[in-house]
């Protein structure tokens, strides 16, 4: 979340709650709605690292609010982040561990594991499809994020098929 917050602050100074709302608006239902506590913790760390600073803004009849803005060091860090290639997704698949290890323990056979997992992936796909249908067609960002999740899920299913073919 560090970089997303830096990017938003590079656009304009904001307080924590505005950052939360901005993330929700931009990424829509496909983004895990950030909890406000996480945002303040992250902002605190960014401040400690010298990437953002905050000023207290007085409000009539309310407690002061803290408005954050990005520093030169923050801009530099953001620039580095934008320019470096992003890591590819890592295969860190809990199911694959089960599939390889569980039969050794005699707990389950692979066919049953694969079949159960396939149905589960299809249930997730159905959720994603329904989420896509509910998403505002004008929100390209949210729809692309959902499509990305669908493509990953499709790859997981294809891999499952390969496992079923090649692991006795």
């Amino acid at each position: 979340m560090r970089q997303s917050l830096l990017a938003l602050l590079a656009k304009e100074p904001a307080h924590g709650y505005e950052l939360k709302q901005a993330l929700e608006t931009i990424f829509g239902g496909a983004y895990p709605s950030p909890n406000i506590g996480q945002i303040y913790v992250t902002l605190g760390r960014l401040e400690k690292d010298g990437y953002v600073r905050s000023v207290d803004v007085e409000q009539a009849n309310r407690p002061n609010k803290k408005v954050y803005y990005i520093t030169a060091a923050g801009r530099e860090a953001l620039e580095t982040w934008v320019e470096e290639p992003s890591e590819g997704p890592r295969v860190r698949d809990e199911f694959f561990m089960k599939l390889v290890l569980a039969p050794m323990t005699g707990l389950s056979d692979r066919m049953a594991l694969v079949n159960r997992q396939r149905r589960h992936y299809l249930a997730l796909m159905r959720d994603l499809r329904e989420l896509a249908e509910r998403t505002d067609p004008a929100n390209r960002v949210a729809l692309l994020l959902i499509e990305g999740a669908m493509l990953h899920l499709q790859a997981d299913l294809d891999w499952l098929e390969r496992c079923q073919e090649d692991l006795p």
Binding site: G29, Y31, P32, S33
Partner: peptide, 9 residues
Amino acid sequence: PLGAAGDVV
């Protein structure tokens, strides 16, 4: 239920 697919993405 996915009001948000937060766990997936």
